[in-house]
Structure formats: C-alpha cells, structure tokens
Design a binder for these strands. Sequence first.
DNA 1: AACCGTCTCAACCGCTCATGT
DNA 2: TACATGAGCGGTTGAGACGGT
Length: 267
Amino acid sequence: MGRSPCCEKAHTNKGAWTKEEDQRLIAYIRAHGEGCWRSLPKAAGLLRCGKSCRLRWMNYLRPDLKRGNFTDDEDELIIRLHSLLGNKWSLIAGQLPGRTDNEIKNYWNTHIKRKLLARGIDPQTHRALLGGNAASSGDGAPRNKSTRPAPPHPTAVPAKATSAIFAVTKPPPVPDRDSSDYDGGRSSSGGGTTTSTGEPRCPDLNLDLSVGPTPSSPPAETPTSQRPVCLCYHLGFRGGEACSCQADSSGPHEFTYFRPLERGQYI
DNA sequence: AACCGTCTCAACCGCTCATGT
DNA sequence: TACATGAGCGGTTGAGACGGT
C-alpha cells in the first residue's frame, strides 16, 4: 500500500540461516554494534533483509540469551504477566532475562495455554472456564488457520495506550552497544530488563501506570490515585525477593502497591 | 521400516509506532 | 504539520523433529 518493501526481495535469501550467515552477522555486530538494520545486511555482506538480520540476532544469536527449558517459576511469571498485559510479548519478555518475545510467544502457544486449560482457566481471559464451551475461545488449536486473533484482553492495557501507560522506569542509558540489552529506546528485549551481567532488574517492573507523559517533575504530594504502581508487589515479589521499588521510593516516585495475588488467584 | 499425524520453533509478513526532515 | 523512513511488534506459517501404529 504505497510502501516500499523493506528490502529488495529478489536478491535476498530466505528460510533457515546457515552457519556462515550466522558467523557473518555475529562478526559484524561484534565489530560495529547493532546499527542500522536496514543497511546492515549489505555492510555485512549478507543477502538478507534487515528485518531478518534483526530477528536472527534478537532471537537466536544474542550472547545473553538463555537457552533451554522454561522453569516453573518462569512459567508462573509468564502467566501472571500475561494476565496483566495480554499478548504484549515484548513487555513480558522484558521481565524474563535471557528470553525473547518470540520464544515466550511460542512457549505460550505450545505449552502454557494447554497448562491453563488443564487447570480449567481460560488462557485469554485468565478466568475459570465455564462449562465445556470455553475451550473454544482461542484455545490450544493454534494450527487452525481459521483461528481469528484473540479479542482484546479484558485486563490488558489497550495496545495504543501501552506506551503512554507503561512508561517503564529506565536505568541510565548505557552507551556500550556491546551490552545486548541496548535497544535504542524501545525494544523487545524489554527496556533494559537485564544488566549486562544478566542480572534481573526488577525496577523495570516499575511500570508507571499514570496516564499521560512520564512524570518528570518532582511529585509534590502525588495523590495516591496518580502514583506509579509497583507491579512487583502485585506479582508477589515485593519485599526483597526481587523488587527494589520500595528502595526507589526515595526517588521521584512514591509507589502505590497492588495487593499481591494469592495462590491460585489470577486476574 | 515405513507411514502418518502432531508438535515445536525459527522465520516471515504485515502492520503500527517512533523519529527525522 | 505532513510525509518518509526505519525499527519493532504480534500473528502466522512451514519445515523438521518426534512419537505412535
């Protein structure tokens, strides 16, 4: 629709990446960082579309990726985050160091949906399934080509509002492009969820739920209803486990805490 | 061993959003 | 302000792996 293709498709490879292509991409990014994806393939001598290079790097080649099975804790965290955020895979991935949005999305579709259904929970709404027909609401039949996109998540933030509402409290910018969580400002790797050492950074759960511009001026007696919300607490992490929001409350935000979820409780 | 159905996950596609001019 | 461009996101696809018969 009037938009030029992202690359000259006639001269690009498609399908699985070869080892040689991987090596070229890795070598190029090591030498030059993740610059302009559009021009990267040519510069790196790859017959690939820039998007394809980015995807390959983000989902497979990044050195900080955690390969292997998801742990039960990760399962539960994904479920809880999904109940809050809906299909915002990049946001969810941002809370799981070393995991990619694509990986989580696949894992959700292949494992967690089924797990929730087995628990009698609708994977889209996170509510108890009613009777026998609830499984029809976009359940574990991802291969059905007639499957329509799931309806908007009842508890999720509307897609358009995400950027305004979830103004993630970011750490200071790190100029080092080697640190693979660099994302140029908005990325699937999650607004800097991990440190360069791979440590989880719970402060990134300090999602600012206030509508409108990210608060930048000092809050003079911020009304409770307008305070940022600490989701760590809601997710059951407050109090030293992984959340440092409380410590951050000396900063510009004074957090409002959601009551934590109880065992077996979903939103 | 061969066939077939199912599952998994890397990759693609089309769209939206952010940014620059 | 409007438009162009590039980056990123989420849904979908398809090849290969796997398990059952």
